[in-house]
Amino acid sequence: MTSEENTLSGLAAQVIDLHDAALAASGGPPVAAPAEPQDFNHLYWIRANHRFNSLLWAEEDLARRTQVGDSEIAANKRAIDGYNQARNDATERVDELLLVSLGLVDRASAATASPVSLASASARLNSETAGSIIDRMSIMALKVHAMRWQTQRTDVDDEHRQSSAVKLARLEQQRKDLASCLDRLVADCQSGAAHFKIYRQFKMYNDPRFNPALVAERGPSQGKA
């Protein structure tokens, strides 16, 4: 096992601690941006993914307001599109760096549209990537934080707090399950039993070259980007 692979032991616990610490430091979403860009550090990109998920969370709350003008809701919706794209980009970056650390993708090709896999032909392909599990864990951290607050509210009755406590326990179990799946996937990748791939989302609705509504707005003379 390489030194890079060794740093992935207990990855799920690191992720949970990172997510919870960011929420505790900020008092809730959105969390602070990572201190310094570190292009080749998977923990930096895990933090970045969590940051964008927390920004999405805050905007989703604002987008459901009913006593503000349509222009404010439209601004929320546009922000959601941008943060969602950034969240997916960060998830892909996490997968690139983890696969490089695991020796399962050619380093030079990892960030391209066609990463070259170095996985054994006998290794099973896991349909969910490690990055996508971490992304789900980030969302679960936000849900746990929000539901825990519901159990502590003083402006609601006991039934609300008790019901929230039941939901909180379920959310914590769900996050624990995801953590177990992440560590199992990493361990199986380290042993050569499994691998995952870098999947590009290619979110066409955010790209004026591919979204047919945006292409129509630009007209035939501006159809090429």
Results as ranks from 00 to 15, higher is better:
residue 8 L to Q: 00
residue 132 S to C: 08
residue 108 A to P: 13
residue 14 Q to T: 07
residue 84 N to M: 05
residue 114 S to K: 15
residue 175 R to H: 06
residue 52 F to Y: 15
residue 35 A to C: 13
residue 183 D to N: 10
residue 103 G to N: 08
residue 18 L to G: 00
residue 192 G to I: 04
residue 47 R to S: 08
residue 68 V to W: 07
residue 182 L to Q: 15
residue 203 K to G: 03
residue 172 E to W: 01
residue 97 L to H: 02
residue 176 K to I: 01
residue 68 V to A: 04
residue 9 S to P: 01
residue 167 K to I: 14
residue 49 N to K: 04
residue 30 P to W: 12
residue 42 H to Y: 14
residue 134 I to F: 09
residue 188 D to C: 06
residue 145 H to Q: 03
residue 66 T to E: 04
residue 94 V to F: 08
residue 18 L to W: 08
residue 113 A to K: 05
residue 216 A to C: 12
residue 98 L to G: 06
residue 214 L to R: 12
residue 191 S to F: 03
residue 147 M to W: 09
residue 90 A to E: 05
residue 113 A to C: 15
residue 10 G to H: 02
residue 174 Q to I: 12
residue 72 E to M: 12
residue 4 E to W: 07
residue 63 A to R: 08
residue 212 P to H: 02
residue 64 R to S: 13
residue 176 K to F: 07
residue 183 D to P: 02
residue 129 T to I: 00
residue 153 R to P: 10
residue 58 A to F: 15
residue 28 G to D: 00
residue 112 T to L: 01
residue 31 V to P: 02
residue 39 D to W: 05
residue 158 D to H: 11
residue 211 N to K: 14
residue 43 L to A: 14
residue 185 L to C: 01
residue 192 G to Q: 14
residue 12 A to F: 00
residue 32 A to R: 01
residue 175 R to Q: 05
residue 212 P to Y: 06
residue 101 S to T: 04
residue 1 M to W: 12
residue 77 K to M: 15
residue 156 V to R: 12
residue 135 D to K: 04
residue 110 A to D: 11
residue 210 F to K: 06
residue 205 Y to D: 12
residue 156 V to S: 04
residue 10 G to R: 11
residue 39 D to Y: 11
residue 200 R to M: 08
residue 36 E to M: 07
residue 178 L to D: 13
residue 80 I to G: 03
residue 96 E to G: 14
residue 121 A to Q: 11
residue 19 H to W: 09
residue 50 H to Q: 10
residue 90 A to N: 10
residue 5 E to K: 05
residue 109 S to V: 01
residue 173 Q to K: 15
residue 79 A to Q: 13
residue 21 A to W: 00
residue 147 M to P: 01
residue 101 S to H: 06
residue 123 A to V: 10
residue 157 D to V: 14
residue 42 H to I: 06
residue 119 A to T: 15
residue 211 N to S: 05
residue 54 S to V: 00
residue 97 L to W: 10
residue 203 K to F: 06
residue 50 H to C: 01
residue 67 Q to M: 03
residue 195 H to N: 11
residue 11 L to T: 05
residue 27 G to M: 09
residue 210 F to P: 00
residue 153 R to C: 05
residue 118 L to R: 15
residue 120 S to L: 13
residue 155 D to V: 06
residue 110 A to R: 02
residue 134 I to T: 06
residue 137 M to V: 03
residue 169 A to D: 08
residue 138 S to M: 09
residue 75 A to W: 12
residue 151 T to Q: 03
residue 98 L to E: 02
residue 88 N to E: 01
residue 61 D to H: 07
residue 16 I to K: 08
